[in-house]
Write a protein that binds this DNA or RNA. Structure first.
Lengths: 261, 261
DNA sequence: CTTGCCGATTGATCCACATCAAACTGGCCG
DNA sequence: CGGCCAGTTTGATGTGGATCAATCGGCAAG
């Protein structure tokens, strides 16, 4: 059983992971906007790693950070590249994923505004990240970042909290991937996605789902057909309504019960 | 499809996760051994978080650490307990796992000497850990630990490296759980387990497997029967020989190829 | 040496989800 | 406004690994 999902998708480059994707870097739009007060005005600062910085630190952070933009499906970075940068998302949604040599894909997470992408151990990225919709991020060279944190214990503790939160989410996802049924997987995904959206202040009656069905399937270890069928069944059973770009939960309690069990 | 594996196993207490397992604490053997030079003589110090400590720091660490022992199947801590302690393993192997309400179990990792168990976000443990064989660990109160790290950036960086390594391993495991076949799962497990044993200096022709088939199954998102059948098939195909307490790899290249693909 | 016990193995059958294969839908461009 | 196209839904069928059910084997106690 091999659920190859990504290799067949049109437009996705089958790059050699060891190869630098310089093209993506060059295409990156980097406006020379006035940097004064950029971080002070940052809408996600309190959510992000920067929430631990005071005014002085923030000014220094601002000096070493650069704002970068990514269009839909553009890569922030790819597995195997030299891990020269760290990123802090400020808008949009990114998918983080790993591939097997034959093209099978596992989405290991979705990054939202405030999320930090820099917890990599080695000198090479161990996963790829690309923009699901239009994405903006603060990019720092790893070198500058490492130097920045070295004598700021409070910031280091903050980074550590973020890593810990990531790890806990990964452990929860292992439980989901290894032991939950398709129905439970989809329900869990909806509930936890809604929860994450709420945490960044996006609390709406309809849960917005900017990622494709294929992305969801690859996140849950399912096929696109199973995700689609499960959502359709949920709709038939009046648990939710499928709308363009998301779902509206009619019976959140039932969904939560499915997600828990 | 519900692969309940643990609830039926004899002897495993179906404790309320929210309930403190005071009994386990009391049963813990805590000899009043002379503490002089304990850390200096620690055989896994360079592998552990303590590898970042100089003599002075080590003396202070020793003051706040306490050595604890656990018998086979004894709990180091359980999900839902107040997360009052952190642990650094010094000998033995522990299984880390999460349960669903109906008893389905996911082993999220195996901890080896040198591994640090303290990367928890909240005030409660988000997973359980218990001894597979006889386990020894250094236990610190979370309070003392937090205070200890606060003004030691080098140590904090070390902790962060450990968390990052854990996270990377978790991401690799998500790929395995979501997208690999049973055969690939078992081969990957053998290869990566061998690698980890080698890293702690246990390099032997036979890979020692102190955990049960059930533990392996719950780690790989399979049933015990599938693990057993797959290993038997590997043996029939002369890739390995099953011996008591482990396996001997006859064709490591073939196993590695299976693990990679 | 015999018995009991517990984990591991082996065999037969089943089923949840994958795979294969159309149709459908909604946004976009000419 | 119509026709394309990428993503999604729906239907029919296949199968990898789960489930159910013995049996085996190593070891510890008697």
């Amino acid at each position: 059983m091999k659920y190859i999902s990504w290799s067949a998708t049109a437009g996705e480059p089958r790059v050699n992971p060891a190869l630098e994707r310089v093209g993506a870097m060059i295409r990156t739009i980097s406006p020379n906007r006035a940097s004064f007060g950029r971080c002070s005005a940052c809408t996600v600062r309190s959510l992000s790693i920067c929430g631990a910085l005071d005014q002085a630190d923030l000014a220094e952070f601002e000096r070493i950070a650069r704002q970068v933009h990514f269009a839909t499906n553009e890569a922030l970075f790819s597995v195997g590249q030299a891990a020269n940068s760290v990123h802090s998302l400020t808008s949009g949604v990114a998918r983080l994923y790993k591939l097997l040599p034959d093209g099978r894909r596992q989405v290991i997470g979705f990054a939202l505004p405030g999320d930090f992408l820099g917890t990599a151990p080695a000198d090479r990225y161990s996963f790829s990240a690309d923009a699901i919709d239009s994405v903006t991020a603060c990019r720092l060279s790893r070198e500058a970042f490492t130097h920045f944190i070295e004598h700021r214990p409070h910031f280091l503790i903050r980074i550590n909290e973020f890593a810990t939160r990531e790890l806990t989410m990964a452990q929860e996802q292992m439980l989901l991937l290894g032991r939950r049924t398709a129905e439970e997987k989809v329900a869990s995904f909806l509930i936890s996605w809604r929860e994450r959206l709420a945490q960044i202040g996006d609390e709406q009656p309809t849960i917005s789902l900017p990622m494709s069905r294929q992305d969801i399937a690859d996140y849950l270890g399912l096929t696109i057909e199973t995700v689609s069928r499960t959502l359709t069944r949920f709709e038939r059973e009046k648990m939710l309504i499928i709308v363009t770009g998301g779902v509206r939960l009619l019976d959140p309690d039932r969904a939560a019960a499915m997600a828990a069990a």
